[in-house]
Amino acid sequence: MSGEPVIKTEDLSVEFQVGNGSVKALHDINVSIYDGEVLCLLGESGSGKSVFGNSILRLHPDNALVKGKIFFNGQEITALSDKEFLPLRGAQLAWVPQSAASSLNPLKSIGKQVDEVYRLHVENDKKKARENTIDLFRLLGLPRLPELADDYPHELSGGMKQRVLVAMGTSAFPKFIVVDEPTKGLDAVRKREVIKRIGHMQKTHKSTMLLITHDVAVAESLANDIGVMYAGEIVEYGSKDEVLNSPKHPYTRGLINALPQNGFHAIKGFSPSASDMPTGCKFNPRCPECTQECIDGHPKLIISESEKHVARCYHA
């Protein structure tokens, strides 16, 4: 953890205009991701974790309003125009979307689709692009190489498609990759394989990564730092071991207790919807440790060099 962070956000908030009102999906996110590190955002669907990834890559629908600043290698990318930003995306900032099934072009062989990214952003050389693609596929543990590169998406299993997407995201050697829910909908065996391979690739390339997931097991095997998200906020932040072994926030504890190996103990109630937020601490209606203080006040979260493991909780 030294030098400038690759990605740094300052008070990043995102609102969506819906009808006449607006819905706040993300509140004042302040995080830094350093070179070669993996930050994992852990949270349920609807917690705003994908919104965060999309803000970095400017992938929002046009009714989104992004406030605050995002820095990439010290440069404020939120200040760039679309024209200035576009060359960064794909080349420097890459995205591995969720739903592997629908993110690949069904009419093009997977090899070609990965080659394209390289030829567009690195060098327009057919042979080098293909070599690079095969190397990546090998790194990601795809079988039957090099013939597999000529297969079409429908010939692949879900886990393999997911790995092809990862290869697409990384083939232009980006500085920073957002990986959104890489294991959603995969079965246990395939999930394990995908996690293992992403980890291997990340270490080999020393990639800087933002990993978005709801799955504690994924975070556990890939992350350096974890930010736990709830209702558009980071409620706990710290190194992987700190957060998972000595969680400070009751929500994090709830997530960990809900794991199969801990006996599926569920957190009571539902996540609040963005249009109907409780006052005070947003977790208070579901929290077993809720006190009057939690209803009256909204706890803050300040991440600093000296105090890295922090939680948005009065009782932490």
Binding site: L255, A258, H265, A266
Partner: peptide, 14 residues
């Protein structure tokens, strides 16, 4: 529960 988050999975199974 395959398509659900881990925490929600626990609720549904319970």
């Amino acid at each position: 529960t395959t398509m659900l988050d881990v925490s929600v999975q626990a609720q549904i199974l319970e």
